[in-house]
Simulated assay, not measured.
Amino acid sequence: MSLLFDEPGPRARRRIRIATVAGTLAALALTALAIRQFGANGQLATERWEPYATWPMWRYLLTGLWSTALAAVATAALSMALGLLLALGRLSDRRWVRAPSAAYVEVVRVVPALLLVYVVLFALPRYGLDLPLFWKLVVPLTVSNAAAFAEIFRAGILSVERGQSEAGLAVGLTRAQTMRLIVLPQAARRVLPSIVSQSVGLLKDTSLGFVVSYGELLYSGRVLANYNGLLIQTFVVVALIYLAVNASLSKLARTLERRSAARA
C-alpha cells in the first residue's frame, strides 16, 4: 500500500475509471477537431510534410537532440552529485552543516528554473561572470534539480533499516564507512526508479535552452520553422521526438520499479 495516500475503495475506483474514460474521450475529440482544422487549412497537405522524409532535416533535428542529451547528462551528473552532498548534509548531526543544506533545498525547490536561467543570463555577467553558452543552461538546471535529487536521496537513505547502520558500527566501521559501504548502495537501488523519473523532468527542462540560444532540440526546431515556414509540421515532429524519448525513459522507470518491488 502507498504511504502517500489511502488505497481507493470500490466507489473511488469506479469514479477513477469513469474520469479516465471521460478524459480519454475528451482528448480524442479535441485531437479529431484539431486534425479537422489542420485539414481545412491545408496543413495536412503532402507537400508540407515531405521535407521531413529527407535526411538533411532529420540530421539537423538529431543534432539538436544530441545537444539536448549532452546538456541533460551533464546536468544529471552534477545535480546528483550535489544532491547527494545536500542529502548527507541534511542528515548530518552537525547543525552548521544541516541548517544550510536544509535552507538550500527548501528555498531552491520553490524557485522556478526559468528564473535561475535569467539570473545566470542577465545578472551574473554584470558582476564579471559570463559563462559559456552550454553552462548558461547547465548551471541553473543543476542548481534547480539538485534540490529534487537531494530529497530523493534523503528518502532513500531514511528508508534503509536502522539495523543496517547499527550492524556496520558494531563490526568496527566508522559512520562514514557505514554510510558509504552499507547504507548508500541499498538506498541507491531503492531510489533508482525515482532518479530515472526525475531525469525525465530534467530532460524536458533543457527546452529552456531557447532562452539562452543554446542549440538544443526545441531551439533547433524553432530555427528550422523560421527557415522553412512549416511551423506546425516542425513542432509536431519535435513533440513526437520528445514523446518518444520521454516515453522510453518513463518505461525504464516503471521497469526498474517493478523489479525493485519484486526483489523486495
Rank of each mutant, 00 (worst) to 15 (best):
L4S: 11
D6H: 08
G9Y: 08
G9L: 05
A12I: 08
R13E: 13
R14W: 14
I18F: 13
I18L: 15
G23W: 11
L25Y: 09
A27E: 02
L28G: 08
A29T: 13
I35T: 08
A40E: 14
L44K: 02
E47P: 01
R48W: 05
R48A: 06
T54M: 07
P56Q: 01
L62K: 08
G64A: 11
L65G: 10
S67V: 09
S67T: 07
A71F: 01
A71H: 02
V73K: 01
A74M: 10
T75N: 01
L78N: 04
L78Y: 07
A81G: 14
L84S: 09
G89T: 07
S92P: 08
V97D: 06
V105S: 03
L115F: 12
R126G: 00
D130E: 09
P132I: 07
L133N: 11
V138C: 03
V139I: 12
P140H: 04
L141I: 02
V143C: 07
S144N: 10
N145R: 00
F149A: 08
A150I: 10
R154P: 14
E161P: 11
E161S: 15
R162S: 15
E166Y: 12
G168S: 14
V171S: 06
T174M: 07
R175G: 09
R175V: 07
A176G: 12
T178I: 10
M179I: 06
L181T: 13
P185G: 03
P185Q: 01
A187W: 04
R189M: 07
R190I: 03
V191G: 01
L192E: 03
S194R: 06
S194G: 10
V196F: 04
S197D: 01
Q198I: 00
K204Y: 05
F210N: 00
G215T: 08
E216M: 05
L218A: 06
S220F: 04
R222T: 12
V223R: 11
L224K: 04
N226F: 10
N228A: 08
V238S: 05
L240H: 03
A244E: 10
V245A: 07
N246D: 10
A247R: 09
S248F: 14
K251S: 14
L252I: 13
R259N: 12
A264E: 13
